[in-house]
C-alpha cells in the first residue's frame, strides 16, 4: 500500500515572550491508503498541532511532510490552500458550517474554490449528501438542523473534492452521544469504501472505531498500535 502521509522528524516549536514551547518533538509516522487512525492524548499533548500540520493549515518548524507524494514544505499560503482543497477533507469539532446558508450551498463551497465546473457541483453535492443520509434536508439552513446532522453535512463537504485523506478533529465532541454513533457509523462506512481517515479524539470508545491508535504525550508518540478491538 502507498503512503498517503509520510512524516519525518516533525517538530513544532512556538516562540513566545515567555520562552519556547515545544508542541511536537521529532514525530515520525506513516499512514497508508485505507487506514483509519485515531490520534489520542491528553490536552497539551500536541495532538491539535499535529492535526494542523497534517491538514496543511500550519507548517512544522523542522522535518519533512509528504502528503500523497507532495512535499508540503516551503509552500506559500496559496499553494497550501490549493493542497488543502485537493487533498484534505476537514471535519471540525464545531462543524464550521456557513451560518444561515443552506446545506446544499455548504457542501458546494469547496468545489467553488476547486474550480469544479458549475454544472457538476450540485450533482456531486447531492450524491454525498445522500451518502450521509441528508438528501431531504438540502434546502435547510445550517442552523435549522441538529448537531449530528450538521456534522454529517460537514462530512459530505469533506468528501466532495475526493480528497486523499479525511481529517476529523474531535468529530463527536459537540454532539449528543446517540448522534455520535450515527456519525461514527458513517466514518466506518467511508473507511470500508476505501477512504483514509485520521481522527483526533480523547474519548477511548470513539477511538475504538479506528483500526490504529496513536497516543501522543508531551509532543512525542508514546504508543502506535493496531486496534485489535476494532469494531466491525
Amino acid at each position: 500500500m502507498k503512503n498517503i502521509i509520510d512524516l519525518k522528524n516533525i517538530s513544532k516549536i512556538y516562540t513566545t515572550e515567555a520562552g519556547k514551547t515545544i508542541a511536537l518533538d521529532n514525530v515520525s509516522f506513516n499512514v497508508k491508503t485505507g487506514e483509519f487512525v485515531a490520534i489520542m492524548g491528553p490536552s497539551g499533548s500536541g495532538k491539535s498541532t499535529l492535526m494542523h500540520i497534517l491538514g496543511a493549515i500550519d507548517i512544522p518548524t523542522s522535518g519533512t511532510y509528504l502528503l500523497d507524494g507532495e512535499n508540503v514544505e516551503n509552500l506559500d499560503d496559496d499553494q497550501l490552500a490549493d493542497i488543502r482543497n485537493r487533498k484534505i477533507g476537514f471535519v471540525f469539532q464545531a462543524f464550521n458550517l456557513l451560518p444561515r446558508t443552506t446545506v446544499l450551498q455548504n457542501v458546494i463551497l469547496p468545489m467553488k474554490y476547486g474550480n469544479v465546473p458549475e454544472e457538476n457541483r450540485e450533482p456531486i453535492a447531492k450524491k454525498f449528501l445522500t451518502l450521509v443520509g441528508l438528501q431531504d434536508r438540502l434546502s435547510h439552513t445550517s442552523n435549522q438542523i441538529s448537531g449530528g446532522q450538521q456534522q454529517r453535512v460537514a462530512i459530505a463537504r469533506a468528501l466532495v473534492m475526493n480528497p486523499a485523506i479525511i481529517l476529523a478533529d474531535e468529530p463527536t465532541g459537540n454532539i449528543a452521544s446517540s448522534q455520535a454513533e450515527e456519525v461514527m457509523a458513517i466514518f466506518q462506512k467511508l473507511n470500508d469504501d476505501g477512504h483514509t481517515i485520521i481522527m483526533i479524539t480523547h474519548e477511548p470508545d470513539i477511538a475504538q472505531h479506528s483500526k490504529r491508535i496513536i497516543i501522543l504525550k508531551d509532543g512525542q508518540i508514546v504508543s502506535d498500535q493496531l486496534n485489535y478491538q476494532y469494531r466491525i
Binding site: G55, D77, A81, R84, N85, N96, Y113
Partner: peptide, 16 residues
C-alpha cells in the same frame, strides 16, 4: 474571522 478561516481551510486562496 471563523468563516474566513473555514473558507481558507477549504481551499480559498488570498485572491478569492
Amino acid at each position: 474571522t471563523r468563516e474566513i478561516g473555514l473558507r481558507k481551510a477549504l481551499g480559498a486562496k488570498k485572491k478569492a
